[in-house]
Amino acid sequence: MERHITVPFDRTVSESLSAGDYVFLTGTVYVARDAAHKRMTEALECGKGLPFDIKDQTIYYMGPSPARPGRVIGSAGPTTASRMDRYAPALMDLGQTGMIGKGRRSEQVKEAMIRNKVTYFAAVGGAGALLSRCITSSEVIAYEDLGTEALLKITVSDFPAIVVTDCHGASLY
């Protein structure tokens, strides 16, 4: 099924999505990969909050190439999601509802997805030039010193993805 989804979205929307659905995401997405996840987790462990309110938000696992002058972002395809598996359940427990990446996830992540009604989308790996066209704004909101691994807030418009694992436990892989 083809669906147009507005991000952020709540649990009810997540529950309506099934593995295999083609989606086009429009709205606001946060971007974080390894190092930003490590920092967010450390912030939570020492009792500090996250740099943004994660409730109903989607995190895109991605580290873009630099934008050429006059452009919003460089190449911007997904990175392997399993490297975030160690950190993801805690964020889902705080209300995150979507993840965009590529590749298999751990059992702990799948359990957290079912528990919190979270959807995992796959974007096509290695199609970063194509995907960058669906990103209409990008700003660093934290951890600028991490370079490509900084935490970003981006706006996406009809960003193509596939529901690869839904919040009911079904998966395409």
Binding site: S65, R68, T79, G126, A129
Partner: peptide, 16 residues
């Protein structure tokens, strides 16, 4: 993607 990359000078993949 390959076409866009070479035409618009956006890396084929962000992981260069």
């Amino acid at each position: 993607n390959l076409g866009i990359a070479s035409k618009e000078m956006i890396p084929i993949c962000q992981d260069t």
